[in-house]
Design a binder for these strands. Structure first.
Lengths: 252, 252
DNA sequence: AACTCGGGTTGACACAGATCAAAGGGGTAC
DNA sequence: GTACCCCTTTGATCTGTGTCAACCCGAGTT
């Protein structure tokens, strides 16, 4: 019997596939940003080999001991928290060059789950060693702080979205955010493939999957986007952006 | 003419009132947690004098250059973000021992506003110097990371609240959170004074002020709490906690 | 003591999004 | 190739919260 993709929890490590930060085309987005060649090779030394995950596999789970943060080398992840009463909230989607696992630093235990939404690969960054090195390399230390701060700012943006926006605004903000992040990685700003289900989008946006689906349909009817299952094409980015600034405008 | 409390934006600095971390009764909650006497005095050296704020005064505003983080020494703050189209989202309430301003690290510019909700005092912690010192003191470095990580985890909790809870659950979670934080500071878990308006609570919880008010009234009718304006007494903490785990229970 | 004003409460009604239900479509496993 | 299952779409109805409006209360002012 073959291991089912969704149930296979055995980590697939591939130490042979390690690629140095200095060789990585994500170095401008990722943790080594701004480091000298020399410092980058010191960072290389502490980064564990890449770890590959199949779609559906957990990178880590809430409750597991925290030891490392992870840089997404390739693929796509979601993070979610769930309460004892069964509530489930997707807290973010992470793509190449983004850092996962910083929630675990505060208590030494992961507080959310990280799941690969497609076959993916991460770099493993042992946190104690990273702290050690960052105390020696100022720019690394500062960049780490920036990465953590950026996560805080991002979360505030999601709070704004969840606290003040209506369904279509939320979805527009979500699509524009994805678009912008794909652009930063050299992909098309207008055309991309969603790796997550409507339900996962809904959980992230505080909506039910039917509402997400209806909003997609409405956008399509209005000629804003074209949707074919998970394939999205944004046809009118300016009008999409205008959705975020409601008609009543800037009222003091 | 006397300066109006709400309009006075001139920082009131009181260098003479500086209290060393080692003398501060918040040291177990605040940044110096876990430091040796010796290291604590080095931290003392970089912390600027306290800054006092009147109710309504801004500690910092979105758009201002970031230079320091702040530790609340006394009083009560809110942070909020607002978009160009006038939306306003309260992202948190901070009390003694909590750290403010970490949102500014990532871009060197503050991304939210911090406002004193009562007469307050903060310690000013210049961030560049803090990074310098934390590269020398391992436990300080690690604790700083923990504080930032805790902020991320807290934000995930708010996302859960905004994304999955109904109005009364949100308010219950909010009150229990306040209760727990007051307890940690040696105050009553059951009886406290709200420093924020219904509208600010509503903004934080993603609700309108009328909904907050109705939820308070309902709780009072049910004998869960007693409310007298901003004075709150939680009469039945266990039942309050039970509100967070809906009746349908743990459904897989 | 009367006035004022911001914050809070309460009621009536509207509506966005949830819920319930059913059917269609595409990918994956065999 | 075919079948199954999950994901998605769409419709009908329900409901929690928002909206609008009136009134109340308490603190500070005159």
């Amino acid at each position: 019997m073959h291991a089912n993709v969704k149930q296979n929890v055995i980590p697939i490590t591939a130490p042979g596939l390690k690629v140095a930060c200095s060789q990585c085309n994500l170095r401008e987005l990722c943790l080594p940003f701004g480091l000298s060649e020399d410092d980058m090779s010191r960072l290389d030394d502490l980064i564990g080999g890449g770890r590959k995950l199949k779609r559906g596999q957990h990178l880590y789970r809430a409750g597991e001991a925290f030891e490392s943060i992870f840089a997404v080398k390739a693929g796509f992840f979601k993070t979610d928290v769930l309460t004892e009463d069964g509530r489930d909230q997707v807290t973010g989607f992470q793509m190449a060059g983004e850092i996962l696992g910083m929630d675990g630093i505060s208590t030494e235990v992961h507080t959310c789950n990280a799941v690969a939404l497609e076959d993916s690969e991460v770099c493993l960054i042992p946190f104690t060693e990273l702290e050690m090195l960052s105390s020696q390399i100022r720019s690394l230390q500062h960049h780490l702080h920036k990465v953590m701060s950026r996560e805080i700012v991002r979360d505030h943006g999601v709070m704004m979205l969840l606290g003040t926006m209506r369904a279509e605004e939320r979805l527009a903000a979500f699509l524009l955010n994805l678009s912008q992040r794909f652009t930063a990685r050299g992909y098309s700003p207008a055309e991309f493939h969603l790796r997550m289900t409507r339900e996962e989008i809904g959980s992230y946006l505080g909506l039910k999957l039917e509402t997400v689906s209806r909003a997609f349909s409405r956008f399509q009817d209005e000629g804003l986007i074209s949707v074919q299952q998970k394939h999205i094409r944004i046809l009118d980015i300016p009008r999409m952006k205008a959705l975020l600034a409601p008609p009543d405008g800037r009222i003091g």
